[in-house]
Amino acid sequence: MTDAALSGRTRTEVDRIQDSYMAQVRRRRMYGGLTLAIFVLLMVSGFVVADGRNAGGFWDGWRQMLDFPADVLSEAWEKRANLPGLLVRYFPALIETINIAAASTLIGAIFGLVLSLLSTRGLARWPRLIPLFRRFMDILRAVPEIVIALVLIFILGGGPVPAMIAIALHTAGALGKLYSEVAENADLKPVEGLASTGATWSQRMWLGVLPQVAPNFLSYTLLRFEINIRASAILGFVGAGGIGFELRNAMAWGPGRFDEAAAIFLLLFGTIVFFDQISSRYRNKLTEGT
C-alpha cells in the first residue's frame, strides 16, 4: 500500500522532470531552429541582393569563371619563351612590395611595442593613461589601410611610402593589442628586481620584460608580416607602387599582355607561399622552444 503510493508519487515526479526536460529540449531546438532559419534567410536574401546589385549575374558568371584564367594561361603558354624575362623584369617590383611589407612590419612592431607596454597594467609608465593608449590603438586598428594610403597618396604623391605608413599604422594598432595581451602575463619579479637597483622605466622594460616575451612577440610579428605582404600587394593595385601596381597596368592592357599578368600572378603566388612556409616553420620553432 505504502509502496504503491510511493512508487506512484515517484512516477509522477519522474514524469514531471521528464516533461520539463522535454519542454526544455523542445525550446532549445526551437531557438536553435529559429536562429538557423534567420541565418539562412539572411544568407539567401543577402546573396539575392548582392546578385541584383552586381553588374554581371552569378549564374552567368559562374560559367565564365574559368574563361579568364584559361585565357591567361593559354596566352602565357603561347609566349612561354618570354616568361623568364618577364619574371626578371617584375622582380624589382616584387622586391618593392616585400620591402613595403617588411619596413611597415618593423616600424609598426616598434610602435606597437611601445604602445603595448604603455597600455599594460602593471608595466605602464603612466598607469592613468592606459585607457587613452588603448583607445588610440583601437582607432589605429579600425582605420582601414586604404583610407590612410589614399589620403597620403594625395599629399605625398604615389609610391611606396604612403602604403608603408598606412600599413605601419594599422600594424602598430594590431600588434600593440596582441603584445599587450602577452605582456600582461609576464612575470613581474625581474621588473621589481631591476626597479630595486634603480633602473629607469625603459631599462626595466628592455631588460626585465622583453626577454620573457620576445618569442611570442616575434611569432606574432612574423604572422603580421605574412598579412602585410598581402596588404601591400593590394594597396599597390590602388596606386601605391610595387607588384600590385604592375598587375593593374598589365590588366588594363587586356588581352595581348596576359603573359605579363601571368608572370605577376606567378611571382605573387610564389612569394606568398614562400613566406607563409618560412614563417609558419619558424613560428612553430619559437612557440615550441618555450
Binding site: 546573396f47 541582393v49 548582392a50 546578385d51 546589385r53 552586381n54 553588374a55 554581371g56 549575374g57 552569378f58 558568371g61 559562374w62 565564365q64 569563371m65 574563361d67 579568364f68 584564367p69 598581402r230 600587394a233 593590394i234 593595385f237 600590385g244 598587375l247 590588366m251 600572378f265 605573387l268 603566388f269 606568398i272 607561399v273 607563409d276
Partner: peptide, 21 residues
Amino acid sequence: RGVDALIWTVVLARAFGPGPL
C-alpha cells in the same frame, strides 16, 4: 590561400563584373 584575395578579386571581376557579389 596563396593565390590571395587580390588575384581572386581580379579574376572574379572578369567573370562577374563589378559589384558586391
